[in-house]
């Protein structure tokens, strides 16, 4: 204990918290950028994925490796769900002018999130679900006197890799370029022959599969509950605004900025006022750079 320098550990842990914020915001961010809608059910999808992961992990029927396999299968499953979701509920909105589509998407996705909450609460109960990292054999690592939860480290690693992959994907691949084109100028992209419906469907699927990953890690790191989705979405809003919606690595930067702001202000200034300090930092950043920390 004496060997652990609290300051270094604090900085490290605030980075890890930023990783969690980024993880739960990245899918939300790309959907907003490319499809042009706010998916207010994103937080609920994260929660539902966490619930499924919890149910699989805590069942005693199968050996651990098979359970892990099933949990990993959640990611493509959620991607498929995202494709269907876009096709049925979002596609009709995209025929409208962008501004109307954005407003309608608020109603549609908020409505969907309410349905999801109620179905969950009535079928699996209202209690929070959570798994300790011990029960999954995820160790607590001590390196150079710094103690770190491997689940949190995993989240940060994953999000950094995912952000970089996305960055490369968007630069190099055809679909990625289409995504970029749409996010820069929708009409021009359509004019140039970009398949808008397909691209937005793929983007949505990508967004929900990222939500699935977020849920799987969140149930280990924190907890999931039927009515905690919307606060998570609101957090994601703050994260992507802070980081800027202009870039794929925006959520990562925004998440780390928010995580550090919250943690450091709670440690050095006042734990009660730290959420407020985070708000003030958010507003200050916006006023200085009205489109977030990362520019287009």
């Amino acid at each position: 204990m004496a060997a652990a320098p609290p300051l270094a550990e604090l900085v490290l842990n605030s980075l890890l918290l930023g990783g969690i914020y980024a993880l739960t915001s990245l899918g939300f961010s790309i959907v907003f950028r490319v499809v042009g809608i706010l998916n207010l059910a994103h937080g609920d999808l994260v929660m539902v994925s966490g619930l499924f992961a919890y149910l699989v992990f805590t069942s005693d029927l199968m050996p651990f490796t098979i359970r892990l396999l099933f949990v990993i299968l959640l990611i493509p499953l959620f991607a498929a769900f995202g494709l269907a979701f876009e096709r049925v509920l979002i596609r009709p909105l995209l025929r409208k002018p962008p501004n109307e589509a954005l407003l309608s998407s608020v109603l549609v996705t908020l409505g969907f999130s309410l349905v999801l909450q109620d179905v969950w609460a009535n079928s699996f109960g209202t209690l929070q679900k959570s798994i300790t990292s011990e029960s999954l054999g995820l160790p607590i690592i001590t390196v150079a006197g710094l103690t770190v939860a491997s689940s949190r480290l995993l989240a940060l690693l994953f999000i950094v890799i995912a952000s970089i992959l996305l960055f490369v994907f968007v630069r190099k691949s055809y679909v990625g370029k289409a995504m970029r084109a749409i996010s820069q100028d929708r009409e021009a992209a359509m004019f140039l022959g970009v398949n808008l419906p397909n691209t937005s469907m793929i983007t949505f699927g990508l967004g929900t599969s990222l939500a699935a990953v977020g849920g799987i890690l969140l149930v280990i790191i924190q907890s999931v509950a039927p009515f905690s989705g919307l606060p998570l979405t609101v957090k994601a809003l703050a994260v992507i605004v802070l980081g800027g919606t202009g870039s794929m690595i925006g959520p990562l930067i925004g998440g780390i900025a928010l995580g550090s702001a919250e943690t450091l202000s709670a440690f050095f200034i006042d734990p009660y006022w730290s959420p407020g300090i985070a708000v003030i930092i958010l507003v200050a950043v916006l006023l200085l750079r009205p489109t977030g920390l990362v520019r287009r």
Partner: peptide, 21 residues
Amino acid sequence: SYFSRGVIGIIFLLVGLAAPG
């Protein structure tokens, strides 16, 4: 006493889909 949230959700959803305004 149950599913009241869900019903409101469905109404939001339908209005959002059917009516931009």
